[in-house]
């Protein structure tokens, strides 16, 4: 009975993933960021990603997303990422321009975690002529 239940659960999760359709591959723009569990800036992180990391954009009938967020897959995790952080072309990343300097920053797990969260906490804009 227990194994049957397990089988049913795994089948249902397979069905959920099978419904996800890849609609494009984009690249992550900020220095460090996170794929989030929910479409919220304070939602827990599923994984941390760095600039230039490929992100598969997904479409699913079971997942509805607000206009500023995207439903995406990174390294086997399905979650949410801000649209403004994605680029169609591979961006010019600090990590690839100055790789040894970036390595030299010696960021530990805690630094990576907070650096990933920082990006989403910024309210950003650029002024234009009125």
């Amino acid at each position: 009975m227990r194994s049957l239940l397990c089988l049913l659960i795994s089948l249902s999760s397979f069905n959920l993933q099978a419904e996800d359709k890849v609609v494009g591959v984009f690249y992550f723009k900020p220095l460090i960021g996170q794929l989030r569990q929910n479409s919220s800036k304070v939602s827990p992180a599923l994984t941390t990603l760095q600039c230039g990391h490929p992100v598969k954009l997904l479409e699913s009938s079971k997942v509805s997303v607000s206009p500023e967020w995207s439903y995406a897959e990174v390294s086997g995790h399905q979650g949410f990422i801000l649209k403004k952080d994605l680029a169609e072309q591979r961006p010019d990343c600090l990590q690839s321009k100055y790789p040894k300097f970036f390595d030299g920053l010696n960021l530990d797990l805690s630094d990576l975690y907070y650096w990933g969260r920082l990006n989403d906490q910024f309210i950003e804009f650029e002024t234009r002529a009125q």
Binding site: L118, Q121, F122, I123, E124, F125, E126, T127, R128, A129, Q130
Partner: peptide, 24 residues
């Protein structure tokens, strides 16, 4: 809503093409 208010204020005062990040 400080982003839109502050952006308008900067633009009104003539600060054009300035990139700003705010963190509360």
């Amino acid at each position: 809503g400080i982003d839109s208010t502050f952006k308008n204020l900067l633009e009104k005062l003539g600060f054009i093409q300035r990139r700003v990040k705010i963190i509360v």
